[in-house]
Design a protein around this nucleic acid. Structure first.
Lengths: 201, 201
DNA sequence: CGATTGTTAATTGTCAACAAACCACGTTAA
DNA sequence: TTAACGTGGTTTGTTGACAATTAACAATCG
């Protein structure tokens, strides 16, 4: 069994740019030029193009043919309301499915996530908190049916995290995560799902 | 004012392959080789790669790095159930929003779609029916807020139409579409939304 | 006989050069 | 003055060649 040691260049570039966009440092409309990025990453424009196309399909970039891509604007209130319900549906379904097996491995990973989350909060590592926040929800979605929902879930949550102003409420978000996990430990299915849905805002 | 006469090669290729996959002729797991497609379309591998990446993100193809892409399998019952709810949420929200304006232009387009749908049914033009079925729902989604929901809606419905066995019920599907439009004409918001949600299965 | 290791053919990943499209700017003419 | 029209420079779109990786098969060893 071998883990992939060196992922594709396009994946490395996409991951790097994803974090850069989600950090919220870049204003909507900021252009991403292929040549500039190619020189910055030390690769040719090929992998850059693939990465930009990926991020565009994920909703983080907005592209017009023959013009280029720019950082996408945050979704409108209407669109955001729809997206919130989509996330609730997906993650709620995943959590409901977990209660059919109650696999302990997931609980361990969630506990580890909470511990690291708490540490990052105390250290005020802002970017790390965003990562851990998304990782928490990703663990839930991945637990259901070998992660078959991840591909539909990812574009949804990425659009929500685009210029997400709620990351400031670090402690509050942590407590809500912890409450969900506590309900899972207690075997309270309805309570866990209700807490999770209420947490997604 | 000029319409784009010749869209990008990658878009032409993607559209063509999309229809080929949705037609249901190709069994899940059928490989898509870049070189083969490049020769078939008479272009180089570049645009083909972009098209395959697009279709992969849309859920129609399943790809592994350094190996290639294959026609994706139909979603599992669990995943399909989730996707059904996602479509209901998106299209229901779009329809609810239409009732705030009741723009007549949409009704005209839907009536035209129904007429053409009926004709294609009578002529048993199977592929055309699939197109019109999706076009009907697309019109609904595009009507809300300048089509801002289309990008999240498209990957969802494409996954549902992947090897969709329900297209055989041509007349039944037409009648359900017509019932939704009739409720819209009558100004019955709750009824239209209920009919639409019940139609998505 | 089974498992492991080389070898090879096929396929994807990457690159650099060239072609086509777009945008801003200055010019021209009504 | 203003609108239309070229024009130059910048950026994306496309291409073909080359490198890296994979999977299947053959040979080898325990």
């Amino acid at each position: 069994m071998r883990m992939k040691l060196v992922p594709n260049l396009q994946e490395q570039v996409a991951s790097h740019l994803r974090l850069r966009i989600l950090s919220g440092q870049l204003a909507p409309g900021t252009p991403f030029r292929e040549q500039v990025l190619a020189e910055e990453f030390g690769v040719s424009r090929g992998p850059i193009r693939d990465a930009l196309l990926t991020l565009t399909k994920e909703g983080l970039l907005h592209g017009r043919p023959n013009v280029g891509v720019r950082v996408a604007a945050a979704p409108s209130p209407f669109k955001r309301a729809v997206i919130v319900n989509l996330r609730r549906e997906i993650e709620g379904a995943a959590l409901a499915r977990w209660f059919q097996t109650r696999d302990a491995a997931l609980l361990e990973r969630l506990d580890a996530n909470l511990a690291e989350y708490q540490r990052a909060c105390a250290a005020s590592e802002f970017g790390r908190v965003v990562e851990l926040d998304m990782a928490f929800h990703r663990l839930l979605v991945e637990s259901a049916e070998d992660g078959s929902l991840v591909d539909v879930w990812l574009p949804v949550i990425l659009r929500m995290f685009l210029r997400y102003s709620r990351h400031r409420m670090l402690v509050e978000s942590y407590q809500e995560h912890a409450a969900v996990v506590a309900a899972m430990h207690a075997g309270d299915e309805a309570g866990a799902i209700a807490l999770l849905r209420a947490h997604i805002v």
